[in-house]
């Protein structure tokens, strides 16, 4: 994939990633064959329905996946460091400084008994050699940077005293406090009001551009993808089913699943990220413990060929810089 990134330094590379969950119900792969690369200042969007493995992929990038999950295979490289192989201390060094993360639910993601100023300062003091006072001052500056109104006062407040949007701003300030090379945002606006969503996305994009951060944006909202992404990965049942530049994807979606997503979201033009487009496609994603043979999308796909029910289509190049996993789409010459 390196060829696609001649114009920037790669700061995040993921290859051959398989994540397995061992649960009461058995053991199954929830992420299969994931791979991508993101350069400085670039945005990769990962889009897909609930349960398709987006969060699991995101958490693996910081090696924060839950104990039930194990990385069975693969390679994650952040800023030149092999995250999955690092000893614990080095891993802790890279978290927050090499790669930061914003979570979906800002209320539960913040410590309820610590002021947000302290929560930001704590991250600073962990990675920077600064004193308590300086960290507290810098925390206020960061709150100002994320456009928190009245940052001096707000720094002394606890999460429960802030609105959802302000909490997410605080979360962003924490994640960006040490200016990480990579920022992972796992559905950063899903829990917020529609009007706030656009503000938060605008803020993330602004800061990303200012700091040159590589952004991995997880979402199930195609409007957000259109608004923010450079490259897009469409995930289905733990796998990539389509990978393309954002313009190619919207101009010419190749995979039947992507096309279904787009028809399920008809107001793309008017969206501007303000109108949320939740996907609704008939049927449900097959759970990992009940994967059909062949193409996982076959039970919901209108185009099913005989081959689809037998053999899973590989992800291959269908056009220039445009990959898809579907038997029905002709391969590139």
């Amino acid at each position: 994939m390196a060829g696609e990134h001649q114009n920037g330094t790669l700061v995040l590379e993921v290859k051959d990633l398989d994540v397995r969950i061992e649960g009461g119900g058995g053991s199954f792969l929830v992420v299969r064959d994931m791979a991508f690369a993101v350069a400085r200042g670039e945005t990769l969007a990962i889009v897909g329905e609930s349960g398709c493995g987006k969060s699991m992929t995101a958490l693996t990038l910081l090696r924060l996946h839950p104990p039930a999950a194990t990385v069975e295979r693969g390679f994650v490289c952040v800023d030149g460091q092999d995250v999955l192989a690092l000893p614990r201390a080095a891993l802790e060094d890279i978290r927050g400084e090499g790669i930061g993360m914003i979570f979906q639910e800002p209320l539960t993601a913040l410590n309820p008994v610590m002021t947000i100023g302290d929560q930001i300062a704590e991250a600073l003091r962990r990675h920077r050699d600064i004193g308590r006072r300086a960290a507290a001052r810098r925390a206020i500056e960061l709150l100002d940077l994320v456009r928190m109104p009245d940052p001096d006062h707000r720094a002394r407040l606890y999460p429960h005293q802030l609105s959802g949007g302000m909490r997410q701003r605080a979360m962003i300030a924490i994640a960006l406090s040490c200016e990480p090379a990579v920022l992972v945002a796992d559905e950063p606006t899903t829990a917020l009001d529609v009007t706030i969503q656009a503000q938060i996305l605008g803020l993330i994009r602004d800061l990303q551009q200012r700091l040159g951060t590589a952004l991995v944006l997880i979402t199930h909202d195609l409007g957000v993808v259109a608004e923010m992404a450079d490259t897009v990965i469409v995930m289905y049942a733990g796998r990539r089913v389509e990978v393309a530049h954002v313009n190619d994807l919207f101009d010419r979606p190749l995979h039947p699943y992507t096309r279904a997503l787009m028809t399920a979201a008809p107001h793309l033009e008017a969206a501007d990220g303000a109108k949320s487009m939740l996907m609704e496609i008939k049927g449900a994603v097959p759970p990992p413990w009940d994967m059909p043979q062949g193409c996982p999308f076959a039970p919901r796909c209108g185009l099913t060929l005989d081959r689809c029910r037998v053999e899973e289509p590989p992800l291959v190049k269908k056009r220039d810089g445009h990959l898809a996993a579907c038997w029905e789409v002709p391969d590139a010459a």
Partner: peptide, 23 residues
């Protein structure tokens, strides 16, 4: 979640346990 956030900041384990979890 906030314990996960604490780890995501890069905090060392003893600090996460005492400052975030235990409190």
């Amino acid at each position: 979640d906030f314990v996960r956030t604490a780890y995501a900041k890069g905090l060392r384990r003893p600090r996460v346990i005492v400052r975030h979890a235990l409190r």
